[in-house]
């Protein structure tokens, strides 16, 4: 077990959660709860993988993955924004729809080897001891983009004019509407942005972090973990990034626990009986619940973070919140 290796793997897998969670933060900040992240992610993973296979261009795959996730999210947008359907049920059906589409269209992709996203080193930064090789060496470009994504998203949401409109629409749509902000338009835009980023997260899995198409195992619940991360992060992109990387590191650490024969001076039970690894597979899900408990307590105490119009449809002219 080596800290550099764990950190290296942690930021790579954490990038997946980071993009999906930031996308969901944008969507939820506009007042739309989209629980379909898992479906959009899986569809993105499939689309990226198959387009890269067909065109030999992984970047085209990434682009199509984003559009696929975005297109799917628009279905949620129409149903929840215009038809005012229940956002929870719509998000669930989006999960079904995305998963089903991905499985149907992804038939026969397992075992194929499309060109993948390449890894690069960042000069100078990669020569920093310990951290350099972990953070700035042998990562895909999207991991480096991820480092910038969280601060940029934070700045955009909190310090810019469009970001202010976004927050207003999520907090008090009627007030935003009364000063001429297009509530429906903004909700559509950020629902789409969330979908694109979920699709991107999927493509990062299938084309970079753990390449391949393993049907629904490809995402294995990471879309749901991303949603939990949003609550844990209290709708703050910086916290989401930190949580994502931490989570990624824990995943790696858990895998590495199976290797050594002696652990903390004791015979390693995982080494003796590999069936104990089922408990290791459980761990990320248990951790998600624990993280959620802490996150929810903080939100409940401060009443901070959660957009107050989250999950509520906005109808013009009706007395709303």
């Amino acid at each position: 077990m080596n800290f550099t290796i764990i950190l290296h793997a942690g930021v790579a897998t954490g990038t997946v959660l980071l993009f999906a969670a930031i996308g969901e933060i944008f969507t939820e900040r506009s007042g739309i709860l989209n629980l379909g992240v898992e479906g959009m992610m899986l569809l993105g993973a499939m689309a990226g993988f198959s387009i890269s296979l067909a065109t030999e261009s992984p970047w085209l795959g990434v682009l199509v993955a984003m559009l696929a996730g975005g297109a799917l999210s628009l279905a949620h947008g129409v149903v929840t924004i215009h038809f005012q359907a229940d956002q929870v049920v719509s998000g669930l059906s989006l999960t079904f729809l995305g998963t089903g589409l991905a499985l149907v269209l992804g038939e026969g992709l397992t075992g194929q080897t499309p060109p993948l996203l390449l890894d690069y080193n960042i000069p100078l930064l990669s020569s920093i001891p310990v951290i350099g090789p972990a953070l700035f060496q042998d990562h895909g470009i999207l991991v480096y983009v991820g480092y910038l994504a969280a601060p940029l998203a934070w700045y955009y949401i909190n310090k810019t004019r469009p970001g202010m409109h976004l927050r207003a629409v999520g907090q008090k749509p009627s007030a935003a509407d009364s000063v001429g902000v297009n509530v429906y338009g903004i909700r559509y835009i950020y629902t789409f942005v969330g979908g694109c980023l979920a699709g991107l997260a999927g493509a990062i899995i299938s084309l970079s972090v753990s390449p391949g198409w393993y049907s629904s195992q490809t995402t294995s619940g990471q879309g749901w973990i991303a949603i939990a991360l949003v609550i844990f992060a209290q709708w703050n992109p910086m916290r989401a990034a930190l949580g994502g990387y931490l989570f990624g590191m824990l995943r790696r650490l858990i895998l590495d626990l199976q290797g050594p024969r002696i652990l903390l001076g004791f015979a390693n039970p995982l080494y003796i009986n590999s069936n104990y690894s089922f408990f290791l597979i459980m761990t990320p899900y248990v951790l998600t619940i624990i993280a959620l408990i802490f996150g929810s307590r903080a939100v409940a105490k401060k009443r901070a973070g959660s957009p107050s119009a989250l999950g509520l449809p906005y109808v013009r002219g009706e007395r709303g919140k």
Binding site: A85, S93, G100, L101, L103, E107
Partner: peptide, 26 residues
């Protein structure tokens, strides 16, 4: 039926149609 995801897909579409159709009730 092949491909295997088809029944999942159908379920998703049914649920989507259903919640969309609720607008007709309102």
């Amino acid at each position: 039926l092949q491909p295997a995801g088809l029944s999942f897909l159908l379920q998703g579409i049914i649920l989507f149609m259903l919640i969309s159709s609720d607008v007709l009730l309102r």
